[in-house]
Design a protein around this nucleic acid. Structure first.
Length: 596
DNA sequence: GCCGTTTTCGGCCCGACTGTTTTCAGTCG
């Protein structure tokens, strides 16, 4: 069983126990363990084999035993018994906003409701309103919640939520007496998908801000409206796609602002750790202050709060309780890469294959971005749906690049290819053609439904090929649309490390592939990462910014990302790699002759 | 279920808002 499967099983246990009315702390222990396993940087199989799982904080003997059973047998009788004792429909009912485990249990115990459909019918008959603890309004909210679930996905992508959040903030900034405003939550932490927009405002007239907020033209429904907090359901159009999600607004005073900013940025797990840390110093920490009844610890910025807790300032992207508190304690947090560190990119398409812009147009756009180099990597011959380039077309493109390089100043075009990794792990061009490129991106575009073992072997074989410089979009996933192909990423990253290959962070916001957790793993093994926009138009070159966000979440410093290097260093490294390959081939031939 | 310079029991982060309640439980983040 993989990490994800084990984590899902533990999380399900936590949920099922909640529905049984178990001790909430016991339930939380399962949810917590699930999170720990999912975000694990080490290999789960190794930990199981060494019996060191229970050394991880939050995983005790019971949890270790269950995880071992899951990993070694692929099953867990405890979970199976739980499942058979609780109707699956109850878990689904939890997704209805406003319904938690207590209410779902009450509905099941008292009215024998065990599915969303039965609940909807009971609401329509007016039975819910008569139940103790429920009422007319609850019944109505349940009905609206069910309708909402049926029309919309739970999460949206970062690139969809960011512009919508910007629109809202733009309007709120203009309200009188708004002294400060920030987007918090998962958007500020740059998670790849977003559940809601959290906005924090500093103002001494909260009602005025709230009133504007709940009357925004994008608001479809007001979910809550209080003095310091309001929630609405928003919808808007981003890049021609309808996006709807919840937005929460909090208004605080200036002295409260840094504490509120810290609190609402989260993650929940990170702020819980900070609160525990404050408690161990005899202070309470909440969204308004830190200290005791008698004395508060002053802070004007988030950094002041961290400092008071004897911690280095933790950038929002790292606040996931995956080791950042411990690193901040030792003052060993990385200096994270920034957008301005990027000097060029290596994965872009032109009209020669399936891109929208010509070579010239892409070059001009790269110049406007201030880059030193732009690597062109059109598709290879077998990918006919994307008009992959024949060897002749490749040579024509090389000539065009040489010609353009003669005219351009300040930008160097590099000859690359996004070569297909064929079904058997070989590459889609002959070696003599591959030898003519400055670098090679190797990617999978076909036969996604292979078994995990076959796909892993296919990609690892390609990584071992000396012509390959970097691996493109390692899982092929499309966020909220399709899962990646099944592949053992741990093995892929280890293979990349072994052969000195780079791995791409594909910055298309629909992909963000490699994901931040595996970026962290690759970093730990010394694998260089490359932030590539996979641009199919001039505008899409700016996607590199989303790649930088992923890189920051993956703890990357500038030195760990290849395309932060200046042109001279890039050319030298690419040349070195190619020479190592070609001279190896050449030397083999020479020594062969020498023996004769 | 986890955890321990107030250790093997008794805690476990904390506040806003809502709805159904005469003082609070449930949900959410």
């Amino acid at each position: 069983m993989t990490k994800e499967e084990v984590a899902a099983a533990l999380d399900e246990i936590g949920t099922l126990l909640e529905l049984k009315g178990e001790n909430p702390f016991r339930c939380n222990a399962y949810h917590n363990a699930a999170r720990i396993i999912q975000q694990l940087e080490d290999n789960l199989q190794d930990l199981v084999a060494s019996g060191k799982l229970s050394e991880i904080r939050g995983i005790g003997d019971t949890m270790q035993e269950k995880i071992i059973t899951l990993v070694t047998t692929g099953r867990l009788p405890f979970l199976e018994e739980l499942r058979s004792s609780i109707p699956a429909g109850l878990v689904e009912m939890l997704r209805i906003p406003g319904l938690g485990p207590k209410k779902v249990k009450a509905l099941h115990d008292q009215l024998h409701i065990s599915s969303v459909a039965e609940l909807q019918a009971a609401c329509q008959r007016g039975e819910i309103a008569r139940l103790k603890g429920f009422g007319e309004k609850t019944q109505q909210k349940i009905l609206e919640g069910i309708a909402f679930l049926q029309t919309q996905n739970q999460r949206v992508r970062l690139d969809q939520a960011l512009p919508l959040a910007e629109e809202v903030m733009e309007r709120l900034r203009r309200v009188a007496d708004v002294q400060d405003i920030a987007v918090c939550g998962s958007i500020r932490r740059r998670r790849e998908t977003i559940h809601d927009i959290d906005i924090l405002v500093c103002s001494s007239h909260p009602e005025a801000v709230m009133d504007v907020f709940i009357q925004l033209p994008q608001v479809e429904q007001v979910l809550a409206h209080g003095k310091s907090k309001s929630s609405v359901r928003l919808s808007g159009y981003v890049h021609g796609e309808k996006v709807s999600l919840q937005a929460d607004l909090r208004v605080v005073t200036a002295p409260q602002y840094p504490y509120a900013l810290l609190y609402f940025t989260g993650s929940k797990e990170h702020t819980v750790r900070l609160r525990q840390r404050a408690l161990s110093r005899g202070w309470t920490l909440n969204e308004y202050m830190m200290g005791t009844d008698k004395q508060s610890i002053p802070a004007r910025t988030e950094a002041d709060i961290y400092a008071a807790l004897d911690l280095q300032y933790v950038p929002p992207e790292l606040r996931e309780d995956t080791g950042e508190i411990e690193a901040a304690e030792r003052h060993e947090l990385p200096t994270l890469i920034e957008e301005s560190d990027i000097q060029g990119v290596f994965h872009c398409h032109t009209t020669a294959s399936d891109g929208m812009a010509t070579l010239e147009e892409m070059a001009q756009a790269a110049q406007r971005l201030g880059w030193q180099y732009l690597g062109i990597a059109d598709h290879s011959q077998s990918l006919t749906v994307a008009r992959g380039l024949s060897p002749e077309a490749v040579r024509r493109q090389w000539e065009a690049i040489d010609r353009l390089n003669g005219q351009l100043s300040g930008l160097r075009l590099l000859k690359g290819t996004e070569v297909d990794i064929l079904e058997d792990g070989t590459l889609d061009y002959p070696e003599e053609l591959l030898a003519g490129f400055d670098y090679v991106v190797a990617s999978v575009h076909t036969r996604f439904q292979m078994s995990r073992e076959e796909m892993t072997a296919r990609v690892c074989k390609a990584l071992a090929h000396p012509a390959v410089t970097m691996l493109g979009h390692p899982t092929g996933r499309l966020l909220l649309r399709r899962d990646g192909y099944k592949i053992d990423l741990d093995a892929v990253i280890r293979t990349a490390a072994q052969h000195g290959k780079m791995i791409e962070i594909n910055a298309q916001p629909l992909r963000l592939d490699l994901d931040w957790l595996h970026v962290k793993q690759a970093r730990n093994l010394g694998v260089p990462l490359v932030i590539n926009p996979d641009a199919h138009s001039t505008h899409e070159l700016t996607f590199y910014r989303y790649g930088v966000m992923v890189a920051r979440r993956g703890w990357l410093q500038r030195e760990q990302v290849f395309n932060t290097r200046p042109l001279a260093a890039v050319l030298e490294e690419l040349h070195r790699r190619k020479q190592a390959w070609l001279s190896n081939v050449g030397l083999a031939g020479k020594s062969h002759r020498r023996h004769h």
